[in-house]
Computed example of a mutant assay.
Amino acid sequence: MDWLKVLPKKVGIEDIKVDEIVGDINKEVPKYLIPKDKYNEVLEAKKQLGPDIKERYKQLNDLGDKVKGNEELG
C-alpha cells in the first residue's frame, strides 16, 4: 500500500505519522474488505446459481409430469 503513503504527504503530514497511519490501516482493512480475487470468485459462483436453479426447476417439473396418474405410488 505504498500509494497510501503518498496521500498524507500531499497534505503535509510527517513521515513518522504516515508510517504509523499506514500500519494501522493495514491491520484494520482486512477486517472490513475482501481481496478482489475472492470477490470475483464468489461473484462467478453467484452467476452460475441462476442457470443451476432454472435447470433444477425444469427437472422438478419433468418429474412432476412423469408421476401424474401414479398417485398410488406415493
Rank of each mutant, 00 (worst) to 15 (best):
K5M: 01
Y39C: 06
L43S: 15
E41R: 10
D62G: 05
K9Y: 05
G69E: 06
N70S: 14
Q48M: 12
Y57C: 09
E44T: 09
K36G: 02
M1C: 13
M1R: 04
D37E: 13
K66W: 00
I25E: 00
K17L: 14
K54D: 14
L7H: 05
I16H: 04
K68T: 12
Y39P: 03
K9P: 06
N26V: 14
Q48N: 10
W3H: 08
K54C: 03
L4V: 13
K27D: 14
D2E: 12
D37N: 07
W3F: 11
L7D: 01
W3P: 02
G23P: 10
G64F: 10
K17W: 10
I16S: 13
G69Y: 03
E55I: 02
I16K: 15
E72D: 12
D19G: 11
K5G: 03
L4K: 09
I25R: 01
K27A: 15
I16R: 07
N70M: 14
L63Q: 11
D15F: 07
I25T: 05
I53E: 02
E72N: 09
R56G: 01
K31R: 13
P51R: 02
E72V: 15
G50D: 09
K36H: 06
K54W: 02
L43A: 15
P30C: 02
A45I: 11
E71L: 08
G69I: 07
E28H: 11
P51I: 08
G23T: 12
K46V: 14
V6K: 13
G23N: 11
E72Q: 06
G12S: 04
E71I: 08
L43M: 13
Y32A: 05
D2A: 09
K10P: 00
K46C: 08
R56Q: 06
P30Y: 04
K31G: 01
Q59E: 09
K68W: 00
V6M: 07
N70V: 05
Y32C: 04
L43C: 04
L7A: 12
K66C: 00
E44S: 13
D37F: 06
N70K: 15
E28Y: 15
K58V: 08
N61K: 15
W3T: 09
N70G: 08
K47F: 05
D52H: 08
K47P: 03
N40I: 12
I13D: 00
I34Y: 01
G50C: 00
E41M: 11
K10Q: 12
N61D: 12
E20T: 15
K68I: 11
